[in-house]
Amino acid sequence: MNALSRPVVEELGAVFDELELRTEIGVAILTGGGGKAFVAGADIKGFKDIIGHRGVVFEGARGMQDCFSKIENSRLVVIAAINGLALGGGCELAAACDIRIAADNVIIGVPEVKLGLIPGAGGTQRLARLLGKGRAKWMVLSGDFFSARDAFQMGLLEKVVPAADLLAEAKKLAGSILANAPLAVEAGKRAINEGVEMSLEDGLVFEAGLVADLFMTEDIKEGAGAFVEKRFPVFRRR
Rank of each mutant, 00 (worst) to 15 (best):
S176R: 13
K133C: 09
L183C: 10
M198L: 06
G35W: 09
K114M: 10
G143L: 06
E169M: 15
G225L: 02
A184Y: 10
V77R: 01
G60V: 07
K137H: 07
G63Q: 11
E112H: 12
V140Y: 05
C67R: 00
M64W: 09
F68G: 02
A184C: 09
P162T: 05
F215H: 13
V140C: 05
I82G: 00
F146M: 06
G52P: 12
P233N: 02
L12A: 04
G116E: 11
E229I: 14
Q125N: 13
A174V: 03
M1F: 11
K70L: 00
L93R: 01
E186H: 10
L93M: 00
E11K: 13
G88A: 12
V106Q: 04
E92W: 00
D213T: 15
I108Q: 03
K70Y: 02
M64G: 12
A174P: 03
R126I: 05
A187T: 08
I29M: 01
R231A: 07
L19G: 00
F152C: 06
N2Q: 08
C67N: 04
F145K: 14
E194Q: 15
E186Q: 10
E201Y: 06
E222Y: 08
G84W: 04
E24R: 10
T31A: 03
F232I: 12
A224K: 12
L117V: 06
L21K: 06
R54M: 15
F16W: 00
G41L: 03
L204M: 08
C67V: 08
G89H: 03
V205L: 07
A40V: 11
G63C: 10
V77Q: 01
P162M: 01
G88V: 05
E194H: 08
K137L: 08
F227S: 14
S147D: 07
G55Q: 10
F38N: 04
R236A: 13
I101K: 02
F146R: 07
L21M: 11
I25A: 09
F215W: 13
V77L: 02
K45R: 15
W138V: 12
A86K: 03
E222P: 08
D165T: 13
R129L: 10
I192R: 11
K171A: 13
P119G: 10
V196F: 11
E72N: 01
F206Q: 05
M64H: 12
D165P: 13
G34H: 00
R22I: 08
S142K: 08
L141N: 12
G88F: 04
M64V: 14
L210Q: 10
L76N: 05
F68I: 01
E92L: 01
K230R: 15
I71K: 03
I177H: 00
I29V: 09
V205S: 07
D49V: 15
H53T: 14
D144S: 12
S176D: 15
R231D: 08
V39N: 09
E11I: 06
L200C: 08
I101L: 04
A181I: 11
A102L: 00
L204R: 06
P233A: 01
V57E: 12
N180E: 14
L214Y: 14
G35K: 06
E18T: 10
M198W: 04
A191C: 07
A187F: 06
K137R: 11
A174G: 04
G52L: 05
P182K: 01
M216K: 13
R22T: 11
T124N: 09
S5C: 03
T23P: 09
A102V: 02
I25T: 12
K221R: 15
N83I: 03
D213C: 14
V113Q: 05
A168N: 11
